[in-house]
Design a protein around this nucleic acid. Structure first.
Lengths: 357, 357
DNA sequence: ATTTAGCACTCCTCCAAGGTGAGTGCCAGC
DNA sequence: GCTGGCACTCACCTTGGAGGAGTGCTAAAT
């Protein structure tokens, strides 16, 4: 008997029903208890008796927006109900000024990008009392500043490269022949001259192309350099990662007090790939993205919501940050807060604000 | 009425009582249920009636070795009981051959020390079904192989140094004046010549001494080099860290099913300093070290036991690894397993088995 | 046609009572 | 010093009823 209802179905509902749904969701978010007709009648500005409210609630239940845990409990929003609320009913509250100043302050204490990522994650979790997550900037989209080779032992070579002014990466590669320090230096010089300032993705593609096409016209030194670059920027080198903090905050929420659920969730956190995939999806969409409960498609997140925003450096989206908490969260504050954090992190990471290399 | 009892009090107990304590602890570890006199009478080889056993149990309880949760439950070992069991009654079982081969195999798949540390932690948690922890090798005790400087922007200089053949560290320092690439190269050469092969601790001390005493006889270049070395090896640079895996395994144990306890424990894990301090203590003692329940002194670990062993590279203790689980764990298997893992990790990390730089 | 009051009903939650069983402590006899 | 017997304790489970919140339905009021 429950009608299947998409999200854009406000036309089926009159102003009053929507108003009541809004009040119900707000009330449930603040109390955590199923909301009954009597309570809703008092809470809403509409002067309606509980009986009338009950009729409306029955309609909302038929549409699959709310649901009652058992006969004599009040109503609780469903995922669809939350979705409608978040998409069309929500009145966002501006970020509190004390939060804002904390963000600005603590995102600018270090000039190391890893420190900034960590700080952002901690800010997200501390100020929301939920879990905060920030992906490391995507290497693909980031610019190569400088590359250097260091011989470790015969064919083992340490590659160091700096991207975007702040980030330092290193990797050990195994070369096919033994190189002298001078040869390595020469290779690095060559690569720096032609690839510096270009995105890693571009570099990777260019390297592939050179190896396929232009081998004849290249000197042995250039060829060696390009081969080493290929090893250094090898795709599977790139293990996406994120910084998650405040997971323990999630243990306080009653909706996650079930040990099995909690275990699944924490396992998902430590396995990472699922979460990474989810966050990658959020990177596509500019701005704030929200997954409520099962919407994420990952069973471990069934009772959680995820509010994310992508962050950009030099107008290029490079990563995602967000907050993980129970579906019952204060969206009206969390959404602008996540949005703001993303903007400020992007600004803090922006190399343009620093002197160039 | 409970006598205060230290650990070396086996003289107060006859052979039979000890035998019964041993059987009781073993039984409790395998079942998780308080052990009654009837069960113990059947389990032990001694042909004694439950009534006799009850008398002995009363003695053991007076000595504070066992305790009954309530009048009509069986007995459960106390921390002191476990301690006596572990110290003098335990018959360790050799590491299972399938575990051994897994250890050997998976500790040698990579030559990157971070990979090895990670692998060790995962092995510890997977094969024990508890949480595994491995500290990163102490930098102090590790040998400097190679140092390199790279200019980032005016006074920001990237320091890269390789220790122990495998580990690569990097840090950004701010110098007091602007250096050219050639000057940096020269400084690196100088430092490599005099400090390569010496432990970071020695280097740090030598640097301090030079700056205090020998400034006159040094050239400007040497002085610059030493000053940069001081910044690079600055003590607070060194944040001890560990790799913890399989925390979620702990969520399965009934003794940790209390949400508050679990939250405290996980918070201790993410705050790290407490755990680091505890692990540091274990580094003093050569070989396997065990903390049972409250013995650790950290409230978060009250219902856990920690079995650790230090691991060494070139006969020098550089780190600690271990397993965290409920006090009720299979010590007879865990202890030799942790011991073995430490030995194999040390062997895998040993630079002597590889070609020198 | 919509809103409201009234009423019977459902079902969760809390509490107390009583039965069951595991295990104990103690005592008397071997 | 060991053992069997016995009364006792206490956690655990089930049952059953009281209380309360909230519902759905119906009929009357607006």
């Amino acid at each position: 008997m429950v009608a299947e209802v998409g999200v854009g179905n406000t036309q089926f509902l009159n102003e009053r029903s929507l108003q009541l749904l809004k009040t119900l969701v707000e009330r449930y978010i603040s109390d955590g208890q199923p909301v009954g007709s009597r309570a809703l009648s008092k809470d809403s500005d509409l002067k309606l008796s509980p009986a009338t409210i009950r009729n409306v609630m029955a309609d909302l239940e038929d549409l699959g927006l709310i649901h009652s845990p058992h006969t004599s409990a009040g109503r609780v929003p469903t995922v669809t109900g939350y979705r409608l609320f978040v998409d069309t009913l929500l009145t966002v509250k501006p970020v509190e000024s004390k939060d804002l100043s904390l963000l600005q302050q603590r995102l600018t204490v270090s000039d190391d990008s890893n420190d900034m990522i960590g700080a952002a994650s901690r800010l997200l979790s501390e100020l929301t009392q939920m879990a905060g997550v920030v992906t490391l900037p995507k290497r693909d989209l980031v610019c190569l500043r400088h590359i250097e080779f260091l011989s470790l032992s015969h064919t083992r070579v340490l590659v160091i490269f700096v991207t975007n002014e702040h980030e330092v990466h290193n990797k050990i590669i195994h070369t096919s022949k033994v190189f002298s320090a001078a040869e390595l230096q020469q290779a690095a010089n060559y690569l720096n001259t032609i690839y510096s300032g270009r995105s890693l993705d571009t570099v990777r593609k260019a390297v592939l192309k050179e190896l396929q096409e232009d081998q004849e016209r290249m000197s042995q030194g250039m060829l060696d350099a390009v081969r080493m670059a290929q090893l250094a920027f090898d795709h599977n080198n790139e293990k996406d990662d994120y910084v998650l903090t405040g997971e323990t905050n999630l243990m306080g929420f009653s909706e996650l007090s079930d040990m099995d659920r909690l275990k699944n969730l924490f396992e998902a956190f430590s396995q990472k790939q699922g979460v990474i995939h989810l966050l990658d999806q959020c990177m596509q969409a500019q701005g704030v993205q929200i997954f409520i409960g099962e919407e994420s498609g990952y069973r471990a997140f069934d009772h959680c919501s995820l509010v994310t925003s992508s962050y950009s450096v030099s107008d290029e989206v490079v990563g995602v940050l967000g907050v993980i908490g129970p579906t019952r969260m204060a969206y009206e504050k969390i959404i602008p807060f996540v949005d703001m954090t993303a903007k400020l992190l992007g600004a803090a990471l922006n190399p343009k604000s620093k002197t160039p290399l």
